[in-house]
Design a protein around this nucleic acid. Structure first.
Lengths: 186, 186
DNA sequence: GGACACATGTAATCGGTTACATGATTAC
DNA sequence: GTAATCATGTAACCGATTACATGTGTCC
């Protein structure tokens, strides 16, 4: 998904500023889909406005800087819905953790323990974040995706707890005896 | 992970050509980590050779084109191991499917059914691919990551089977009555 | 006094994809 | 005949990140 679609996706839930869109995309519910930085969001929003997909209004605040609040238009809604409907890209999972795990016998038990702990912490954080978001649950789509996320994260956490020790053992046995080329048989 | 590291990762399991590296990265065990195209792999391999991280030999074949087989060097091994050890980036999951699910009430039951089926198929394929790879299982890291993958895919498949109907119901109820702005409460 | 949250925006850079260019062999 | 697999490589392009630029208020 492009940053353009991401902006429309978030704006279709209600008005927002560029700053808020970035927050939603890196922390909120939308972190499943993309995480974008200011450098891509602001230009996307400007183009979206030029294309008539969103409108802007400026809001003065005392103390804080003026904010530009964006609203989605009907054209924006239909562009987004159309984008949703067309050929769905496959889901992807990219795991630096699994990469380290794959080389458990080479990197040693300390690196593995650290990697395992880091991954555990990360999953726990995502789970906590989902668990705390139970305000928006009058919206059925949000409820379903949230429950899906909770189920996956819980499963992962349990799996890591149940099989982490095994991975550490692999790392311990690999120490010194490490000879990868022997296992390289195609 | 960069394409450079991906090449080193694959080559540390044994010699390979650029063509084979791409296959591993889009289909094989390494699809968890990155999927790269020729346009990035060939230049990366050339740089790796210039930097002394890999060596090449040309192999003539009758009928098929000449292939350039790359081997990792000791420098390459240590660069890769160093890259593995340094600050681990968080795992990411990007789901076009969940994005569609989030807007279930807007897109209608047909789109949802299709998206659900497509996702199911995708997970099934990944599972089948993992299940068929049980040749390389004398290597403990591969075995662990493979089993992890199988567990996750199986869980996902079961979850989709158990809760898919619920999502379709949401889409059916959303038809016509769709009013997102009502649910936009921050 | 320093770090952090709020808030917007631009410019340089980079990593990667897509399309192009080439060509033999095998399977349907 | 035509699609797919094997096999390597370049050039144009693009989308996004990083760093920069600027400024206030609040909390520790």
């Amino acid at each position: 998904m492009s940053v353009r679609s991401l902006c429309l996706a978030i704006l279709s839930f209600g008005d927002a500023t560029g700053y808020e869109i970035r927050k939603e995309s890196t922390e909120g519910r939308f972190s499943y889909f993309e995480d974008a930085s200011f450098g891509s969001i602001y230009p996307a929003l400007a183009r979206l406005e030029a294309d008539g997909m969103v409108t802007v209004r400026e809001e003065q605040q005392d103390g804080k800087p003026t904010r530009k609040v964006y609203s989605i238009t009907d054209s924006g809604r239909s562009e987004f819905l159309k984008a949703l409907t067309e050929p769905q890209a496959p889901d992807t999972f990219r795991s630096p953790f699994l990469l380290i795990a794959l080389y458990a016998a080479q990197v040693g038990p300390e690196t593995i323990s650290k990697a395992l702990e880091r991954r555990r912490q990360q999953v726990q954080n995502e789970l906590d974040s989902l668990l705390s978001h139970h305000g928006e649950c009058d919206h059925p789509g949000s409820r379903w995706t949230r429950e899906y996320g909770i189920a996956c994260m819980t499963f992962t956490l349990n799996y890591l707890d149940a099989h982490g020790a095994e991975l550490i053992r692999i790392a311990e046995e690999g120490e010194g005896a490490a000879d990868m080329t022997a296992a390289a048989a195609e």
